[in-house]
Every structure is written in C-alpha cells, then in structure tokens.
Amino acid sequence: MSATDTQPELEFEEVLRPAGFGARVKELLRTSWLFRIGLVIVVIAVILAIIGPYIARFPLETATLDTNEGPSSKHWFGTDSNGFDIFSRVLAAPRIDVSIALAATAISLAIGSLLGLLTGYFRGWAGESVMRVVDTIQAFPLFVLAIIVVVMTGRSIQNVIIVIALLNIPIFLRMMRSQVLSLRERTFVEAARSSGSRELNIAFGHVLPNGLSPGLAQAPITMGFAILVTAGLSFIGAGVQPPTPEWGAMIASGADTIVIGEWWTSVFPGIAISLTVFGFAVVGEGLRAMYLRQG
C-alpha cells in the first residue's frame, strides 16, 4: 500500500468554500453605488440615534417665543408653532424612530424565527394551528389593528414597539419556516441525527443557524417599514406624543400650515424619513440579492 492510493479520495475534499459575509458585503459595496448610499444613510441614522439628542443646538422640548420662523442662519430649518428649533429636533428624532424600529424588528425576528423553526421542524397539529392563526392575522389590515391596540393600551413608545413587533412576526415566521422545511431534509441534519444528537439540539444547533440568512436580509427592510408605521401612527396622533421629538408627529404639527405656505415644519422631518427609510430599503434589497445570488 503506497500513499498514492489515497490521493484521488482527497481531491473530493477540496470543496469550494463560499466567500465570507464580510467579503461579500465588500463586493456589494464595490459594485453598487446605490448600496453605498444606502449604507451611509443607515450608518448616519444609527449614529444619530445614539448622539442625536446631545448635539442639539437648542432645547428639544422647551417652547420659546420664536414661533413659526422660516429657515435662517440661527434656525437652519426654522421653528414650529411652539418655537421649537426644527433642525435640532430632526437630528434628535432617530433616538425615537430608529430605536423603535430596531427594538421592534429584533423582537419580531427573534420570536418569528423561533416560531418558524418550531412549526417547520416539528410538524403537527400545533404547527398547523399556528399557521392558520398567522394566515388570519395577515388577512387583517394591520395598520388599523396597530391604531386600536396602541390607542387603547396608552400611546407610549413601549406599546408602539410591542405592536410593531407583533405585526412583523408573521414575515419572519414564514421565512424561517420555509427554510426549515427544506433544511430538515438535508444530509447534515441526517448526519447529526445518526450521530445521536437530540432533536431539539439539531433544531437549534444545526437548522436554526443555517436558516437565519433570509430573515437577517429582511431585517433592514422591516426596520424601514417600522419607521414608516411609527411615523404614520404618530402623524395621526395614535403613536408617540408631542413634544417628544419624533418625525411623524413633527410632520403633523406642520400639516395645517403647509397649505398656507409655512412649509418648513413638515418638509424637513419628512425628508429625514424619506431618506432614512430609503436607505434601509436599499441595504435590505442589497443583502437579499446577495443572499439569493450566492446562497
């Protein structure tokens, strides 16, 4: 027996390893100018969520006598009917909007993925019932559900987070479930099982980590949607309450005066939402395309 006998066997071991996450994101940054813009927006939004309230040049929630002033060198974005400096509040608002989106998305990703794993891996009447419930919830106009629940439980930031998290659970549940349904038939699951792993360990140790990618790629898109829902609820008075600096509530405070020409109160916070949600959507789309292309 010479060593060369085993040589052909070894060649099969040289499986092409897919590029790591970091390398793939770098590739995306290099090829897509849109993704670069999106990522810059997301990074700025997250930084503002942390430091926004501290870099404000004027007090955020203290009314002044400088009411309804147009943009000037003193007040770059003007002031609203309470005399609040709009520029300061636009920069401080991510503390509320982005934090709500982040918390709500994290909760729905965690609970949705967990339920998706359980209903997909351990199929049975319980899993089927969960899916019927999810079907039924998804067929209801969810924005109205959000209005009813937030208003009736008290219009606090915490309740907005909980409601938006609940609304988004079905998306992540479905994504994880469809992953699990195909993963559970794969060889590595069978291998784990034949080596004596317990079912729960297989589900959490092997299937869960392999099925997370679509949900993680969806997360930025859901965050953008969460910002839209938060701002929408606050715009109609069913979300975060003034004088807390929040983009949707700020737009609402200028909604009556924009039709008589005082545009700045609503325009600037709206631009902030428009850019931020677009940034999150672009990043999410990029990650999703990357995931679909390279698996």
Binding site: G232, G270, I273, F278, F280
Partner: peptide, 22 residues
Amino acid sequence: ALFAGAQPDFWWGLIFLFVFFF
C-alpha cells in the same frame, strides 16, 4: 421603484398639496 416603495405617503400628500394647491 425602490424609492417609492419606501416612502411616507402622508408626507408626499402634504408636499403635493403645497405644490399643486398652494
């Protein structure tokens, strides 16, 4: 397509009002 799908419709309504009404 990507942009419009990620927009606050109520804000665009106000913008359109400002431009086309006011």
